Simulated scan of single mutants.
Amino acid sequence: MNNRQAIRALIRKDIRSVTSSIQLWLPMLIVPLIIGIIVPSALLWAASRMNLHSISNINVILETMNRLIQDGLMPSLASMTSENHRIVYYLALYMFAPLFLIIPVMASSILTANSFAGEKERKTLEGLLFTPMSMSTLFKGKVLAALIPSLFLSWVTFILYGVIANILMYPMFGKLMFPNLNWIILIVWVVPTCSLAVILLNVLISAKVRGFQEAYQLGGLVVLPLLALIAGQATGMLLIGPWMLFGTGAVLLLISWVLLRLVTIWNRRQQLAESQI
């Protein structure tokens, strides 16, 4: 068996182990469905059709938009005819964007926690270590087995959200508004680099700990910086633009390179075998 065949076999095996367990694949579907489709769609529908001042806590977002207009950060909002137009535009094209980083982080954490830690719990890692495949091939298979489903889930959610957003926005604006440049950079550049960084970090953690739950809990700490990013975007303190997204992706790529070096240095065949004892 050559390296490509071994990698494909590892990918199929890892994906099959996830799809065969409802405890693993159900959260991977529910979370994107809620934060990527149901909640944004409900808020966009409400913002486009309701009296905004009748919605509790909406004044916080209205004040944020007014501050952005006054500071000249979003001149496109100033030319819109109503507060409903402004808030729908702001929600659909700016405020919901950071939420889509949670989807690959969550999916990657589940998939990679099930990687080495899951193999240890199932007592199957030792068999993999005794196969003739190289450690490089083993890690490539593990990384790709998490990266491919993570990106697929993120992109499918993005497409569904885009369809719904355009359906709700078209009657108001008379044209297709989604996606803008920020969303394209986010999905094409930031989501893959974020997924890769999270996967490599979780592979590193998963190879060191003994169980799935421990690996998943440690890997889940990656969500904390994203919550700060979401709060900054919602309050207008951190308005994400194209250059910031390009820079974020570049930093994540650098972090991935560092993590890849650590994975290859810290995880030797003998070390992983000894962790089974």
Rank of each mutant, 00 (worst) to 15 (best):
N59C: 00
I7A: 01
L252Q: 08
L129D: 03
R49M: 03
L91E: 15
L176Y: 01
I69F: 07
V60Q: 11
P171L: 08
V191P: 00
P171N: 07
G219D: 08
Y94D: 02
L43R: 05
N51L: 07
L144M: 07
N3V: 07
T124K: 01
A146P: 06
I69C: 08
N59D: 11
G118S: 07
Q213H: 10
L93W: 05
V18Q: 09
L224Y: 06
S76W: 10
Y90N: 06
N3Q: 12
I277P: 02
S108F: 02
F178T: 06
I164M: 07
P75Y: 02
I7E: 00
A92Q: 02
P75M: 07
A92F: 00
L44F: 02
A117T: 00
P27K: 11
T248F: 14
M74Y: 10
A117V: 04
I37L: 15
N2C: 08
A146V: 12
L52R: 10
Q276L: 15
W257M: 14
I35P: 12
I199E: 10
P98V: 11
V39S: 12
S256P: 08
S109F: 03
N180G: 13
I30V: 15
I37A: 12
S195T: 13
S20C: 05
S195L: 07
M135N: 10
M50Y: 14
E83F: 09
V251P: 03
I87Y: 04
T19M: 14
W183M: 11
D71T: 05
Q213K: 12
V18K: 03
T248P: 09
L254F: 14
V31Y: 13
I148W: 04
A117C: 03
Q270S: 12
R49N: 15
R269G: 00
R268L: 05
A6N: 00
